[in-house]
Lab assay of single mutants.
Amino acid sequence: RNRTTFNSSQLQALERVFERTHYPDAFVREDLARRVNLTEARVQVWFQNRRAKFRR
């Protein structure tokens, strides 16, 4: 699988949700994935990586 590149509008939407919660539930992830046209799995991994970055 190739690395996913996120465009600025996708990142903006992802970061907005991250500000609200670092652990979005499945419903939030599904909705977000639909809105930014990504798979739920990509959204889930983005949050895992974003939390790791946040802890650094």
Score class of each variant (00 low, 15 high):
Arg42Asp: 13
Arg56Thr: 10
Glu15Ala: 02
Arg20Leu: 11
Arg16Glu: 15
Arg34His: 08
Leu38His: 06
Ala26Leu: 11
Phe54Val: 14
Phe54His: 14
Phe18Leu: 01
Arg29Val: 15
Trp46Asn: 01
Leu14Cys: 06
Val17Lys: 06
Leu14Met: 13
Leu14His: 02
Asp31Glu: 12
Ala26Val: 11
Val36Arg: 01
Leu38Gln: 00
Arg51Gln: 04
Gln48Ile: 07
Asn37Met: 08
Phe27Arg: 14
Arg34Lys: 13
Ala13Asp: 08
Gln12Trp: 06
Arg35Gln: 12
Val43Asp: 06
Phe6Gln: 07
Leu38Lys: 01
Ala13Gln: 08
Tyr23Gly: 01
Ala52Leu: 08
Glu40Ser: 10
Ala33Cys: 14
Arg34Ile: 03
Ser8Trp: 07
Val45Pro: 10
Asn37Ser: 04
Arg42Phe: 11
Asn7Ser: 12
Glu15Thr: 00
Thr39Tyr: 01
Phe6Tyr: 10
Phe47Tyr: 12
Gln48Trp: 04
Arg35Ile: 07
Gln12Asn: 13
Phe47Arg: 03
Arg1Asn: 15
Ala26Asn: 04
Ala26Thr: 12
Val36Trp: 13
Arg55Phe: 14
Gln48Ala: 07
Arg1Gln: 11
Val43Gly: 03
His22Tyr: 04
Gln48Arg: 08
Phe18Ile: 02
Leu11Phe: 07
Gln44Ile: 05
Ala33Asp: 01
Gln10Arg: 04
Thr5Lys: 13
Thr4Asn: 14
Arg1Tyr: 14
Ala26His: 15
Val45Asp: 14
Val43Asn: 02
Arg34Met: 03
Gln12Thr: 14
Leu32Asn: 02
Arg3Ile: 14
Phe54Lys: 02
Leu11Ser: 09
Phe6Met: 13
Arg55Tyr: 13
Phe27Met: 15
Ala33Asn: 05
Ala52Lys: 06
Val43Pro: 00
Leu11Gln: 10
Asn49Trp: 09
Ser9His: 10
Arg1Gly: 15
Arg56Tyr: 05
Gln10Tyr: 04
Ala26Glu: 13
Gln48Phe: 05
Val43Leu: 06
Asn7Leu: 06
Arg55Lys: 06
Phe54Gly: 07
Arg16Cys: 13
Val17Trp: 03
Arg1Val: 13
Glu15Asn: 01
Phe27Trp: 13
Asn7Arg: 04
Arg51Ile: 00
Phe6Asn: 01
Glu19Cys: 13
Glu30Trp: 09
Arg50Tyr: 03
Arg42Ser: 14
Lys53Pro: 04
Gln10Ile: 11
Val17Glu: 10
Asn49Arg: 07
Leu38Ala: 09
Pro24Ile: 06
Thr39Cys: 08
Thr39Ala: 05
Ser9Gln: 14
Gln44Cys: 10
Leu11Cys: 07
Val36Lys: 05
Phe18Pro: 04
Ala26Phe: 08
Leu14Ile: 00
Ser9Ile: 09
Ser9Trp: 10
Leu32Lys: 00
Gln10Thr: 07
Gln48Asn: 04
Thr5Pro: 14
Leu14Glu: 03
Val43Gln: 00
Arg51Val: 06
Asn49Ala: 11
Arg35Thr: 10
Phe47Ala: 00
Thr39Gln: 09
Asp25Phe: 03
Arg55Pro: 02
Glu30Tyr: 04
Thr39Trp: 03
Arg51Trp: 06
Leu14Ala: 01
Asn7Ile: 06
Glu30Val: 04
Arg56Ala: 11
His22Ser: 04
Ala52Asp: 14
Arg20Ala: 12
Val17Met: 09
Arg51Ser: 02
Arg20Thr: 15
Asp25Arg: 00
Pro24Leu: 00
Phe6Glu: 12
Tyr23Trp: 11
Arg51Met: 00
Glu19Val: 07
Leu11Ile: 13
Asp25Met: 10
Asp25Trp: 05
Leu14Lys: 03
Arg56Gln: 15
Thr5Glu: 13
Ala33Tyr: 03
Gln10Trp: 05
Ala41Lys: 06
Arg55Ser: 14
Ala52Asn: 09
Ser8Ala: 14
Arg16Asp: 14
Phe54Leu: 12
Tyr23Ser: 03
Trp46Pro: 03
Gln44Gly: 07
Pro24Arg: 03
Ser8Phe: 09
Arg3Asp: 07
Trp46Cys: 00
Phe47Gly: 03
Arg34Asp: 02
Asp25Ala: 07
Glu15Ile: 00
Arg55Asp: 03
Arg42Gln: 15
Phe27Pro: 10
Lys53Leu: 11
Thr4Met: 07
Asn2Gly: 06
Asn49Glu: 15
Gln44Val: 05
Val36Ile: 13
Val43Ser: 03
Gln44Tyr: 09
Arg20Glu: 15
Arg35Glu: 13
Thr4Ala: 07
Leu14Gly: 01
Ala52Met: 12
Arg29Ile: 15
Glu30Asn: 13
Gln48Val: 08
Thr39Phe: 00
Glu15Cys: 01
Arg42Ala: 15
Arg50Thr: 03
Asn2Glu: 13
Thr39Glu: 10
Arg20Cys: 10
Asn49Tyr: 03
Ala52Val: 07
Glu15Asp: 04
Arg51Thr: 02
Ala52Thr: 08
Glu30Ala: 09
Arg56Cys: 09
Arg50Val: 02
Ser9Asp: 12
Ser9Thr: 13
Arg16Ser: 14
Ser8Leu: 09
Phe6Gly: 00
Arg1Ile: 13
Trp46Ile: 01
Gln44Glu: 13
Asn2Leu: 05
Arg55Ala: 15
Asn49Ser: 11
Asn49Met: 11
Gln10His: 07
Asn2Ser: 10
Glu30Arg: 09
Leu14Pro: 02
Ala13Met: 11
Ala26Gly: 07
Arg42Lys: 12
Arg50Ser: 05
Val17Pro: 02
Pro24Val: 00
Arg16Leu: 12
Asn7Met: 01
Val45Cys: 10
Gln10Asn: 08
Arg35Ser: 11
Trp46Val: 00
Phe6Ala: 08
Ala41Glu: 14
Gln48Lys: 14
Thr4Arg: 08
Arg51Tyr: 02
Arg1Asp: 12
Leu11Glu: 12
Glu19His: 15
Thr5Ala: 13
Thr21Asp: 10
Thr4Gln: 11
Arg3Ser: 15
Thr39Ser: 12
Ala41Gln: 12
Arg56Trp: 05
